[in-house]
Amino acid sequence: MAHPNLNYLRPGSLPHMYCPGCGVGQILNCLIYAVKELDLDMNKVVTIGGVGCTSRIPAYFNTDAIHGIHGRNLAFATGVKLANPELSVLVIMGDGDCAAIGGNHLIQAARRNLDVTVIVNNNMNYGMTGGQVSPTTPTGATTTTTSRGNIEKPFDLCKLVEAAGGTFISRWTTAHIPQLINSIKRGIMHRGFSFIEVVAQCPTQFGRYALGLRDPVENLRWLRENSVTKTQAEKMSEEELRGKIIVGDFVEKDEPTLVEQYEVILKKAQLIQR
């Protein structure tokens, strides 16, 4: 008997390219559960990836899709959403796409409150290219380009997006599956820029080089043990929070979206014309 969710995968797309124990599979699975539970019309969904392991999700997820340009996910999304506001636009990317090469597109799309749902797999390194340091790699971590330890500070992506103007912001890890599915559902239903960060394991690269953990289960345990909920975090000192992943739903605001604002411009322009 076929798996009941198999119709959410593009026919002929399996086997997938992911390493055993990769977090991307869990994220795709959560996405499928989210759209299934919401009963979304999959013919009206556009999934946009960039380059990297996570950004390959659109090649498997059976919707209209864009793939293959590093970091430009949200620039594509801006054109798609403005051209046809009826489409549900999902932007899937890794920390390289999101926080490095596409960082400007991220903050500008958040500032505009572009009505799309962004899911970022933050595995704290460049997995596909061999485990290089990324803008979310923890300070001190050993990667293939920081063999003597990372001297830079990592981005707090949720705070970055909040400051830029995002209106729905959550962070979970791949050790928080039910919470993650719930936040993806809320993000898709939210009007405006939804940003869901998923801190995930990359046993092949980050786990091996930075954590010294090759076993995926060990990596997941590390994620769970290093996570604190935002409620717990409120009671903890800065010292206690160092190196911890704060998880939870952080922001949910009702603000006009870019498309809604443009509708006003369209009405004004056409009124004057008449």
């Binding site: 864009i66 620039a75 999304a77």
Partner: peptide, 8 residues
């Protein structure tokens, strides 16, 4: 990329 998205 925005114009490519719109064209698609």
């Amino acid at each position: 990329y925005a114009i490519i998205g719109a064209s698609l």
